[in-house]
Structure formats: C-alpha cells, structure tokens
Simulated assay, not measured.
Amino acid sequence: MERQYHLLARLEHDFDHVIETCEALIGHVEHAPPKGWVLGDTPFDIAWLRHALLDFWYQDGQDGRATRNYIGLIAADSTLLAYVADINHAKQTFAATLAEIREDAPSLLPEIKAVLPFRHPTLHDHLRGQGLARLHLKQCWRHLPVADAPLSRVRLAWYSSGRSIKRLSVRDAERRLLEMDTESPHIRIQLRHLADIPDGEPLAQVQTQAPVMRANLFFREALADGRMRRAMNLPLPLFIPSEDGRLPSHNTPEATPPNTRTRAKRADTKLEDAPFLPSLRVYRYR
C-alpha cells in the first residue's frame, strides 16, 4: 500500500510538471509569437496552440484507443525549441512512472484518471463544461514532434493503413481469454473453440487503425548520418528549427482523411471473414 501511495504521489508530481512546462511554452509564445500553419480552416494562434498542448481529456463516447490530432507546422528558434524539449522530457518522465503503475499497481488507473484533473481545477472546470471528464493518459504523454534540423520543404499526406495484424499463438490466445471473465458464456465458448484447433496453428489478432497524417521532411543539408529526408507521423504540431522565423515550403492536403485505403492490401491479410475469437479480435488464416 505504501508503494502505491508513493507511485501515485510521483505521478501527481509528474503530471503537474507536464502542465507547468506546457504553460511555460504558451507564456513564451504569447510574448514572441512564431510563424505557424494549421491544417484546415482554423488559423494558427495562441488559442489553437494552447488547446493542442493541453488536450489531455476523453470526450464523451470517445473510443479509449483513439486520440485527437492537432496537425500543424511551427517555425521554432532555439529558445522555443528549449521549451519543447522541456515538455517532452516531462512527458517522458510521466510515461515512465505510469508504466511502473501499470506493472505494479494497475488498480490505481481508474483513480488516476479521475483524481489528477482536480489538481488543476481551472483547467478541469473549463473542459468539463465541454463534455470532457477523465484524463486520456496517452494524450498526456505523447511527445511533440521536432524536426532534426532546418527543412527545405515538408510533404504531408494522409496514410490509411487499414489494420495491423499481429501473429498470436494458441497458448497466447488462451492466456488472454483466461484473464477475462471466464464465468461468462461467450468466453467459455471461445475457450472451447480454441481447444478444438492444433496448438501449432498461427492465429491473427487484428487491430483497426485510424488514418494518420504522415510527414516527409526534406533537410536543407545532410544530417551527420548522411540522411537528407525523414518520415514521421504528426499527431501534434511539428516544431521546425528556423532561426530566421520562416516556415519551409509545404503542401496543403485535405483536412479530413480519405475514405479508402491509400495503399494496396497486404498479401498476409488473407483471413477468414468472421472472427474466430471475437473478444480478442482474433481470426484464423484461410
């Protein structure tokens, strides 16, 4: 019990530091506004940046696996980049403490999501009025993307991979089902189905993936390892080193992702149409 209190106290301190570093960056930007661009019709301003940095909350009815994106580009001098580094270090510390709690005291997680917001009541009360209630832990610790060096241009495109497929053994599937409510009839049925197939048969666990914005970064000069470009996902605004305060050339994709996949279906997704173990999203190969 004492260790649980210690972990919770550490996480509270780490959460406070994440908020403090975000507020410090926002305060700096208020006095030294950088050039910025936001995807869609929303202008880049301090209100948009504050919302992007401090959106740590579930919306009513939000899928717990989904996170909200804030896609934009920000020209950052060395001072602004230092504030970004402080935020990312604070988020890294928060994530590390959270990982300890998931490992050693997972029963604390519901309390964490409910209690931490009240440490910043002004922020909490404001967001509660917009239908936001509990902490979205992943949105707390995801890092702000930063370009490695000044860029000549940025090419943005939606990437719809459709779904990810992970190989799963029969024993792994059984272990995961046994962690669920084995008194439930639908779990017992799935355990029986699993017992009827060979132990060595590979299974596929399927995770539907939301479209993501992918950025191809083209550097003005080669990096130390010789690279002239890099690709990264942009869930949050990209901070680009720019001592002259200008943004690099960039395209303007559609504000919403396409309805269809942008890449061909992979050959290894030849699965049965119906899930074999619905509770785990597990399919058999044809």
Score class of each variant (00 low, 15 high):
Met180Gly: 03
Tyr5Glu: 12
Arg163Ala: 14
His13Asn: 13
His136Tyr: 06
Arg167Val: 06
Leu39Ala: 04
Gly72His: 06
His89Trp: 05
Ile74Gly: 02
Lys91Glu: 05
Asp60Asn: 08
Asp268Arg: 13
Ala133Thr: 11
Leu168Ser: 02
His89Gln: 14
Glu2Asn: 13
Thr97Arg: 05
Ala96Glu: 08
Pro33Tyr: 10
Pro43Ser: 10
Arg10Thr: 05
Phe44Glu: 05
Thr42Asp: 12
Phe118Arg: 06
Thr208Asp: 09
Phe239Cys: 10
Leu191Arg: 12
Thr260Val: 13
Gln139Ile: 05
Asn259Cys: 03
Tyr70Cys: 07
Gly131Thr: 06
Phe94Arg: 01
Ile197Tyr: 10
Pro235Gln: 11
Pro145Tyr: 04
Leu236Met: 13
Ala96Met: 07
Ala222Gln: 12
Met232Arg: 09
Ala9Lys: 12
Arg261Glu: 12
Arg163His: 08
Ala9Leu: 13
Leu271His: 02
Gly64Trp: 08
Thr93Asn: 03
Trp48Ile: 09
Leu7Gln: 06
Ile26Gly: 05
Ile19Glu: 02
Leu8Ser: 06
Leu194Asn: 05
Asn88Thr: 02
Pro121His: 02
Thr262Trp: 04
Ala231Met: 10
Ala157Trp: 01
Pro121Arg: 03
Ile71Gln: 09
Asp148Trp: 05
Pro145His: 07
His6Phe: 14
Lys35Phe: 02
Leu123Glu: 02
Leu108Pro: 03
Asp148Phe: 05
Arg229Ser: 14
Arg134Val: 00
Thr67Tyr: 06
Glu12Arg: 15
Ile71Pro: 01
Leu277Asp: 00
Ala47Tyr: 12
Glu179Thr: 12
Tyr58Val: 01
Pro106Asn: 14
Gly129Leu: 08
Ser107Val: 11
Ala24Thr: 09
Ser161Tyr: 04
Ala204Met: 09
His89Gly: 01
Leu280His: 06
Arg134Lys: 12
